[in-house]
Every structure is written in structure tokens, then in C-alpha cells.
């Protein structure tokens, strides 16, 4: 049965190796409030004209710790309980692009590769030899190169755009999984407790079985 165990482990390793097939850039997602706040700002300007984030409400941003005044300027006259909806109606978007821009609430979880995919996609725009816009990650995309990475040639300019994209990803990652930090924190306590309990249960088992010898 030891061989069986080894096979199981092998299987786990193989499956995790399978998952990382695509040639995506890895992005380090920021989890601090300030990065996310900059991300919201960028999303409000660059993405929200077309994309909605219907599962995120303004009060969620306040709850996360983003400056209330900033949230107030973003929401204008909408109530705190309103969702972050697109400024463009879906039918207008259909007319302009041929398909409705997807909701971004879960975008960081809804593609193979997660946040890395979205980052690589945003940074994947280029200009074809024929002068047409293209995208390495998602060639059929209808979205224009909103951050302007394909036109940026100077290193400093590219770095700035990449930083902005990283901010956006950080916000999207938080939006897709708003309880992640709470989950990790609770997870450490639970694991710590379980190690203690399992050790005690091990001692109990050993003591009880020692009676047989």
C-alpha cells in the first residue's frame, strides 16, 4: 500500500503541473488597501464606462477600508447600497462591440490562470505588421487597448502602465474573493488548533493501545 500512497502523491503533482500550461505572465497581486484603492480608481475611469461589477456595492468598498470621501465621489448621487454598474447600457455595448462586455466581479477567478490571465491579457496588446490591433492572449477580443500598452514604447511608460494594470488586478482579485484575507487569518487559527488536537488524539491513541502490549 505504500506504492499506492506514492501514486497518489504523484497524481497530485501531475495535476498541479497540468494546471500551469499557458504562457502567462505572473503578477503579484497587492492585498493592501492603498493598492486596491488605486485599482478602483483606475477601474472607475478605464473599465466602468463599459463593464459592470454587479456583485460589488459601494458599501463593500467602504467596508474594506477605502476612504469614504473617495467612495462618495465615485458613487455621485447613487446610494451606498448601489452596485457598481456600467455607464453604458448593455444594448449600446452590443451595438458598439457586437457582444456584451462581461461583468468583472468574478473576472479574477473566471479564467484559467485567474489574475495572471487578466493581467497578461491587458498587457498582451500589440500592433500587427499590418497596423491592426492584436492580442496575444485573446486574439478575438473586441475590447480596445484601453491602457495603451501597444502604443507605449518607452520603458518608463510601459512600467507605468504595467503598474496601473497591477492595481486593477489587485482590485479585481479582491472583488472576486473579498473574504480571502479573513479566510487565511481564520485558517491559521484553525490549523494551529487542529495540530494541537491531532497531537493530543495521537497521544490518546498511543496510550490506549499501549494497554495491549
Amino acid at each position: 500500500m505504500k506504492t499506492f500512497m506514492a501514486l497518489l502523491v504523484l497524481c497530485c503533482i501531475a495535476s498541479s503541473a497540468l494546471a500551469s500550461e499557458a504562457k502567462l505572465e505572473t503578477v503579484k497581486v497587492g492585498i493592501d488597501v492603498r493598492t486596491v484603492e488605486r485599482g478602483v480608481d483606475a477601474v472607475m475611469n478605464a473599465c466602468r464606462p463599459c463593464h459592470s461589477m454587479k456583485y460589488i456595492k459601494y458599501r463593500d468598498l467602504v467596508g474594506f477600508g477605502i476612504d469614504k470621501q473617495k467612495v462618495d465621489t465615485w458613487r455621485g448621487d447613487q446610494p451606498l447600497d448601489a452596485a457598481l454598474l456600467a455607464q453604458m447600457s448593455e444594448s449600446d455595448a452590443m451595438q458598439a462591440y457586437g457582444k456584451a462586455p462581461p461583468d468583472l466581479s468574478l473576472m479574477a477567478k473566471a479564467r484559467d490562470g485567474g489574475a495572471n490571465y487578466v493581467y497578461s491579457y491587458m498587457m498582451g496588446y500589440y500592433v500587427t505588421p499590418e497596423g491592426m490591433p492584436g492580442n496575444h492572449i485573446y486574439p478575438e477580443t473586441k475590447m480596445p487597448d484601453i491602457l495603451g500598452i501597444s502604443a507605449a514604447t518607452e520603458a518608463a511608460q510601459r512600467t507605468e502602465i504595467q503598474g496601473k494594470a497591477r492595481d486593477i488586478i489587485s482590485f479585481l482579485a479582491w472583488a472576486a474573493d473579498p473574504h480571502e484575507q479573513e479566510r487565511h487569518r481564520l485558517g491559521y487559527y484553525v490549523l494551529g488548533y487542529l495540530f494541537v488536537l491531532t497531537f493530543l488524539l495521537y497521544l490518546v491513541k498511543k496510550q490506549i493501545w499501549s494497554r495491549l502490549k
Binding site: 487542529l194 488536537l197 491531532t198 495521537y202 490518546v204 493501545w209
Partner: peptide, 13 residues
């Protein structure tokens, strides 16, 4: 019971 609960602890981890 002792052995199963010990196994349960490992499983829960």
C-alpha cells in the same frame, strides 16, 4: 474509536 479520531484529526488538517 481512539484510532479513528486520530485519523480524523489528520484528515481535518
Amino acid at each position: 474509536t481512539a484510532k479513528d479520531f486520530y485519523g480524523l484529526g489528520v484528515f481535518l488538517i
